[in-house]
Structure formats: structure tokens, C-alpha cells
Design a protein around this nucleic acid. Sequence first.
DNA 1: AGTAGTCGAATGAATGTTCATTCGGTCTGT
DNA 2: ACAGACCGAATGAACATTCATTCGACTACT
Lengths: 202, 202
Amino acid sequence: MTRDSTAPPKAAQPAGEKHDAILEAALRLFVTRGYYGTAVPEVAREAKVAAGTIYHHFKNKEALVNALFRKWKLAVAERIYTDFPADAEPREQFRLIWNTMVDFAFEHPEAFAFIELHHHASYLDEESRAVDNSLKQFGVLFVERAQKLGGFKRMPPMLLMELIFGAFAGMFRAHWEGRIALTPALTNAAQEACWDAIREPA
Amino acid sequence: MTRDSTAPPKAAQPAGEKHDAILEAALRLFVTRGYYGTAVPEVAREAKVAAGTIYHHFKNKEALVNALFRKWKLAVAERIYTDFPADAEPREQFRLIWNTMVDFAFEHPEAFAFIELHHHASYLDEESRAVDNSLKQFGVLFVERAQKLGGFKRMPPMLLMELIFGAFAGMFRAHWEGRIALTPALTNAAQEACWDAIREPA
DNA sequence: AGTAGTCGAATGAATGTTCATTCGGTCTGT
DNA sequence: ACAGACCGAATGAACATTCATTCGACTACT
């Protein structure tokens, strides 16, 4: 709305209401029907926007998924990086990462399902993949440090990571699909079980 | 489909050759591009069959995915049920289930990826879901028995199941996507890690 | 303060493409 | 010569994308 009256006329506002409405609608539809299963005009209708408007904000359907993927993957990454205690005990770090992801998954179930579901889709571009990888790299570094400090199983860090993240994702999928009903007590029990999986047994 | 069983039956067709070719082509394409991302004529081309032929063997595209899903889900189930030592120690049973699934995933990577990816898709019908559930029920019964015999963590059986299966699926996804290179030693290490996750710590 | 002029966001009907499915016909074994 | 199995061009519906046009906000000039 506001505009700097001293500066020359600026270009359009990049981030607007419609832009967000489109991303939200796309999130909802892509999660329930998938990328190919969702028609662009359908996204427009859900966002209460004309079909053409989507193409003012995104180059095409593919650019839209990629923008969505990056938005949420970066949101997760930021939550995990922020205030991460780099010097704490691995046990404490693990608990923190787990809880951060639990909070995120409860707060943004659709976003979590989306990045979970689409993380290897063919329509993701290089940049989206890079975002994905950097988060994975963080996980690997965490495991490597924990292994050096002792107390972690001697397995390829990537394997350990994937086991844990797979378990986490499976837990939430079962929750959303109604097979279990997660509570703080249960996510915590799962966290402890996963810790037992990765730590060196005494 | 049906044939008069009183008449001296002779194969008019050289066994279900085309039928199988269609299923195989569909498996390959559905795994790489998804259900909605795969065109029926594309399946036909991949199967070296005319588009119309697919509709002689399957009522429509949806019937085709469902047939495919059931075929492979039942194949997994059969492998797991067969020769399952109902009276063995849970530790032994767990090792067996794990190894059976590892073998299957290595022998039929596309089939495993397919049932993993599509297990909650909207186009699966009641019967397909029922097949899925019966296998899950088997897992739950295994956990419940193990809990009664002692030595298993006290958590909802379904949660324990989903954690383990999630970890297993994550491990293979990482393998196929090239992030790790699985070997018998590694799948076995993962199996032991997962056992540590579910057993009651001494 | 009022008016004309400019800009670009927004629209939605129109476009060309791709899709799932059909159907008239051919081929093969009996 | 009959019955399927099989074929693939044809069909119509649905799709992603385009574009001529509208609209409202802002600027510049009076």
C-alpha cells in the first residue's frame, strides 16, 4: 500500500496477498491430490483468484511447486538451525532436533506432509534439491560429531540419519492417516526409542 | 476373463503375456512418474501393446493401479507369512521379518517403491486397502505377543510398527536415491539398531 | 483539489495440447 | 467361419498456458 514518495516509481510488490493465497491453496491441493493430480485452474479456484493471476506470480505450474517446496523446507531448516546448541551433549541436541520437528509437524501438518511426499519428485529443480541437501548435511554433521564424542553406533552417518528420519516420518504419517493418535507422551516415547536405536549400547 | 471349465480348455492366448507386460510397464512408469503423471497410451507403448488392449485386460486406469497394488502387496504378504515361526522368540521373528523384507526389496525394488509410495493414494479401492490392513494387522499381532512375553517397550503396538517400518522404508529410499549403498552388513546393522529401538532396555 | 495519464496487477475467455477411453476393424487359432 | 484377443485412429473432455482487456492506485501537472 505505502510507497516511498521520494524514490522513482517502484515495480510491483513482490509479496502480496494473492501470492500467499495461491501458495496456501496449492499446498492444500498438492498434499491431497498430488502434483499431477491437481489442475492449475483448481488451485486458482481454491485461492479465489483467476487462473491467469497464478501466471503473474509464478512462471508456470512447475515454478509454483518449487517455490512451495523451498518455502517450507527453508522454514523447517530455519527452525532447526535457530538456537541450536552447537556445543551441547549429543543426547540433548537430539532431543532438541526431535522436538523441533514434532512442533513443526503439529503446527504445519500439510507443509510437513508436502515436503515429505515431494522430496524426490522429478519436477523439483536444482535449487530445491540444494535446499534439501543442506538440511541433510546438517544431520550428517550432527551424527559425525556424536560419533566422535563416542556413544553413537558406528554406522554410516547417512544411514543412521535416514533410519531416524524415516521412523519420524512414519510416525506422523500414521498419525495423520488415523492409525495412531499422537500425544506429547507418545512422541517423547518415540524419541527415546529412536535414541536407543542410534546410541552405542552399553 | 472367465472360461467354460467343462470344455477342453486350451489357451487361446499364449498365457497372460500381454497382461503381464502391461502390469510390468505400469509398475515402471507409476514408480518414476506417479499415477496421474503417467498416461495410459504411454503404458501401452512401454508394454509394446496397443492402447485399446489395456482396456481388454483392465476396466480402466484405476483398475490397473489397483490390480498392480494388490499383486505386489499380496506378494510381500505371502513371503512374510510363509514359514513364519509362530512360536519362535520375538528376537528371532523380528530378524526373519526384517530379512524377508530386505530380500524382497532387493529383488523387486520397483515393486517395493510402488507399494511404499502408493499405500495411501486416493485411487486405491476398498479391496486394496483391506490387503494393506491385513499385513499391518500381522505386524501388530507380532508386537503384541512380544510385549506379552516381555522385553518389548510398552508403547502402542501400532506406533512401534510404524517407527520400524518407517525406518526400513527410509533406509531403502536412501539406497535407491543414491545417498547410501546398502550391503548385507549394513542392512543387518540397521536391523540391530531397530531392535534396540523397540526392546525394553535392560 | 481536480483531472488526465501511466503502470502493472488481475481477469477469464480462448487456444492448442494431451489425456482416458471407445470402437470399427484385423488377425489367429480352432 | 466364429470367437476372442488385439490393434490404433478417432473422440471428446480436461488440461496448462496465453493474451486482450479491465481496474484501481498512484503521479504529474494545473
